[in-house]
């Protein structure tokens, strides 16, 4: 570790490079677009439940789908899982999801009330 003289509590100065600035401008735009999209998805979910026009049998899977899309937006846009070098975080989050699905399913279904 050759950073002996470096002080990690010294303030960082200077501006990011041109390339970084351009990247950040693009990122800002992506983030705003996905935010609008999330607002839209949330509203759709609420509307599909609040209005009587949509049958429950359709609304349930529909809002679940919307939730999944929104969460993927959160993870990949807001939390930057899409960036390169994030292989391990991706692996761990999806392993978590992989364990979470049977957990939820069994706690819902395999309680000895309905026999499968």
């Amino acid at each position: 570790m050759g950073q002996h003289g470096m002080d990690p509590s010294a303030p960082l100065t200077g501006k990011p490079s041109k390339k970084t600035q351009r990247k950040l401008r693009n990122e800002m735009r992506t983030q705003l677009i996905s935010f609008v999209l999330m607002i839209f998805l949330t509203s759709m979910a609420f509307i599909s439940i609040a209005s009587d026009a949509i049958p429950t049998g359709f609304a349930m899977p529909f809002i679940l789908l919307l939730a999944v899309i929104q969460v993927i937006l959160q993870l990949y846009v807001f939390m930057h899982l899409n960036e390169r070098g994030n292989g391990w975080p991706n692996a761990m989050i999806w392993t978590g999801v992989l364990v979470a699905i049977p957990t939820v399913a069994s706690l819902m279904l395999l309680l000895g009330i309905v026999k499968w």
Binding site: W88, M92, I93, G96, V99, A100, T103, L107
Partner: peptide, 13 residues
């Protein structure tokens, strides 16, 4: 991030 992976299971429970 790994901690968040664990939290996923926590909330799933």
């Amino acid at each position: 991030w790994f901690f968040l992976g664990g939290e996923t299971v926590l909330f799933a429970s």
